[in-house]
Computed example of a mutant assay.
Amino acid sequence: MTTTTSATSTASTASSERLRLMAVVARLYYVHRLRQRDIAERLGLSQARVSRVLQQAVEHGFVRTDVAVPVGLLPELEEEMERRYGLQEVHVVEVPPGTTDLAPVLGRAAAGYLVEAGISGRTVGFTSWSTTLQAMASALPDLPRSGTSHVVEMLGDLGSPALQHAAARSTQRLARVLGAEPVFLRTPGVAATPDLRRRALEDPYVRRAVELLDDLDVAFVGVGPVAVHSMLTPDDNYFSDAQLVRARVAGAVGQLDQRLLDAAGEPVVTELDDLVVGATLDQVRRAGRRVVVAGGASKLEAIAAALAGGWVDVLVVDLGTAQALATRTTDPLPTVAPAV
């Protein structure tokens, strides 16, 4: 019963994403007058794929004298976000009323996006501790082989052994559906001292993972506030409360895989950088395509900082957060559980 329901949900998400892709491609071609080659480059698709999607849009009745967009899709808001922040693509997700946990909703939407857009590149970075990205990996069906050879974790272990096991399973899942080798970063993501971090980097398995992060084709990046994650406790392979207070005093409003950013998206250099075992901001910057799947009131400042600094290429986000970002409002959003 559970398996059938999950499969139906995944199929429905994939179907919705196919409709959304038709709407996006049709608007770019017929409304904004972009060439198919330019659309392909912008969305990370082949030109042949763009041509097929345009044909499907015609067959589904999207194209008349204008583009008819199905109810529930939000192309105008997505285009405004893309224009405002220079993003390649934005996927805005409507969250059912009463939802208290955004992670499963955003994760399924991200899985649908990947089913349609695919992943191109040999090396994929994956923030396996993110509950939203874990939900994405869980919702993914088997994908056509894309040439991906490695899925490498972008941050070491956080939290209890149970949380670490869940992270490893998500990495294995994503690697399996891509037909790639999982590359684990099995060491504390936040070392107790700089010396312990240096010693961890001497391990050949850790060193291999960190070196692979130098050449990421796609990076699924974790974004969050400068605070203890709800699933963690201070010092639990993580920063202490006092360290986080000092980071906020230094101007940090958000983090990318535990690397700190200020409100303008600029790096905030503190002693905490010498404790993190994972992708550096330089490695994130060099990645071919940076994908962020996040939302919720507690993430608003962090997402805004990541966008301001140009750290994101593709954003999957809930409607409330997207509206706040599109209008640059500082008004608080409705309280929901954060999605990491």
Results as ranks from 00 to 15, higher is better:
residue 176 R to N: 13
residue 178 L to C: 15
residue 178 L to V: 07
residue 180 A to W: 11
residue 180 A to H: 10
residue 180 A to N: 09
residue 181 E to C: 10
residue 181 E to P: 08
residue 184 F to I: 00
residue 184 F to C: 01
residue 185 L to D: 02
residue 185 L to C: 02
residue 187 T to H: 09
residue 187 T to N: 06
residue 187 T to L: 04
residue 188 P to N: 05
residue 188 P to V: 08
residue 189 G to C: 04
residue 192 A to I: 05
residue 194 P to C: 01
residue 195 D to L: 14
residue 195 D to N: 06
residue 197 R to I: 02
residue 199 R to S: 01
residue 202 E to D: 02
residue 203 D to Y: 05
residue 204 P to I: 00
residue 204 P to E: 03
residue 205 Y to C: 07
residue 205 Y to I: 03
residue 205 Y to P: 01
residue 207 R to I: 00
residue 208 R to C: 06
residue 208 R to W: 11
residue 208 R to M: 09
residue 209 A to Y: 01
residue 209 A to K: 09
residue 210 V to I: 13
residue 211 E to R: 01
residue 211 E to Y: 01
residue 211 E to C: 02
residue 213 L to S: 06
residue 213 L to K: 07
residue 213 L to I: 07
residue 214 D to E: 14
residue 215 D to F: 12
residue 215 D to P: 11
residue 216 L to R: 08
residue 216 L to F: 14
residue 219 A to L: 15
residue 219 A to Q: 11
residue 220 F to S: 03
residue 220 F to M: 05
residue 221 V to Y: 08
residue 221 V to I: 15
residue 222 G to D: 05
residue 223 V to N: 03
residue 225 P to H: 07
residue 225 P to N: 13
residue 225 P to G: 15
residue 226 V to F: 06
residue 226 V to W: 04
residue 227 A to N: 11
residue 227 A to P: 09
residue 228 V to Q: 04
residue 230 S to M: 02
residue 233 T to L: 15
residue 234 P to F: 01
residue 237 N to I: 12
residue 238 Y to M: 03
residue 240 S to W: 11
residue 241 D to I: 10
residue 241 D to R: 14
residue 241 D to A: 13
residue 241 D to K: 10
residue 241 D to Q: 14
residue 242 A to F: 06
residue 242 A to G: 07
residue 242 A to H: 09
residue 243 Q to M: 10
residue 243 Q to Y: 03
residue 246 R to H: 01
residue 246 R to T: 02
residue 247 A to G: 09
residue 250 A to P: 12
residue 250 A to M: 12
residue 252 A to F: 07
residue 252 A to M: 15
residue 256 L to G: 13
residue 257 D to E: 12
residue 259 R to C: 00
residue 260 L to I: 06
residue 262 D to A: 04
residue 263 A to Q: 15
residue 264 A to W: 02
residue 265 G to K: 05
residue 266 E to S: 11
residue 267 P to I: 02
residue 269 V to L: 15
residue 270 T to K: 01
residue 270 T to Y: 00
residue 271 E to P: 12
residue 272 L to E: 13
residue 272 L to R: 05
residue 274 D to Q: 15
residue 274 D to K: 14
residue 274 D to W: 12
residue 275 L to R: 09
residue 275 L to D: 00
residue 276 V to F: 00
residue 277 V to R: 10
residue 277 V to L: 10
residue 277 V to Q: 06
residue 278 G to K: 08
residue 279 A to C: 11
residue 279 A to E: 05
residue 280 T to Q: 08
residue 280 T to P: 09
residue 280 T to N: 11
residue 280 T to L: 15
residue 283 Q to F: 07
residue 283 Q to G: 06
residue 285 R to M: 08
residue 286 R to S: 11
residue 288 G to L: 15
residue 290 R to P: 07
residue 291 V to W: 12
residue 292 V to K: 05
residue 292 V to I: 08
residue 293 V to C: 12
residue 293 V to H: 14
residue 297 A to H: 13
residue 298 S to M: 14
residue 298 S to F: 10
residue 300 L to M: 05
residue 301 E to K: 10
residue 301 E to P: 06
residue 303 I to M: 11
residue 304 A to H: 10
residue 305 A to I: 05
residue 306 A to E: 12
residue 308 A to P: 04
residue 309 G to V: 01
residue 310 G to Y: 00
residue 311 W to D: 03
